[in-house]
Computed example of a mutant assay.
Amino acid sequence: MTDTSPASNARNYPLLAIPHIQLHGPVDEAMYSSFKSQLAGAPTDGPLVVSITTLGGDPEMARAMGDHIRLLREYTGRETLFLGKVAVYSAGATFMSAFPVDSRFLTRHSRIMVHERQMQSTIELNGPLNTLRYALEAKLHEIADSIQIQEEGFRDLVKGSKIELEDLKAKAASNWYIEADEARDLGLVLDVI
């Protein structure tokens, strides 16, 4: 039953009631597999609604799912709608960035969390001195490329919103939690249902 109280916008967006693709849990290979399977079984006409609830996970899996959405939109012109439920943390926000801001929604009391990419690594230097430099340079290249990927994702997340990229980067350094209503007010999502 649709909540028709004055505080609810749900009746304005009936398509969001039953998402075609429903994702929950960690963003990982299993979620990616479930996403592809549900996408293959979804209707091929009309808007496609995708919901997610996640505390985060693998940003590359989120980017891969996002590429599916982007390609579907670009090659078919099909409308794609994002519905974040309860928690859209970390890699979930990365996935959300694949949708235009005017196609993003959150349920009431949901939160988005954006942070910088994380790395945990140990570098072992062992061998002739002339070769050690290459191991360090390879790690520096990995870090530089990861920062570039992070910035691309941040840029996509704020594109069309009221948030400046530099503001997002500053807040992401210490895990930025954004309440649903604040996300709507900042233009990160179209509305809260």
Rank of each mutant, 00 (worst) to 15 (best):
A42C: 02
M31E: 09
G84A: 09
D67T: 10
N9L: 08
N130C: 11
A91C: 07
I112E: 10
W176H: 07
K139G: 06
M31R: 04
T131E: 15
A30I: 10
Y177G: 00
L168A: 10
S121P: 01
D181K: 08
T44A: 09
S146H: 07
E116H: 15
G92V: 07
E166R: 05
G25C: 06
G56P: 03
I163K: 04
F35W: 11
H109D: 15
V50R: 00
P100C: 06
D167P: 00
Y134V: 09
V27Y: 05
M119H: 10
A7G: 04
V158H: 08
Y32G: 14
I193G: 00
E74R: 10
Q148L: 14
L72E: 02
E151V: 13
L129C: 06
L48I: 08
Q22H: 06
A10F: 03
N12Q: 12
L23Y: 05
A93V: 07
E116I: 09
T53R: 12
D58E: 08
Q148S: 14
M1P: 03
D45F: 01
S51N: 06
I112V: 14
T131K: 13
I163D: 04
D185L: 08
Y177W: 02
R70L: 04
K169Q: 13
A135Q: 14
Y32D: 12
A183Y: 00
Q120C: 09
G92F: 11
I193L: 10
P128T: 12
E116A: 14
I178Q: 02
I143Q: 11
G41Y: 01
E79L: 10
M61H: 12
S5I: 02
S97P: 02
T80P: 00
Y32R: 12
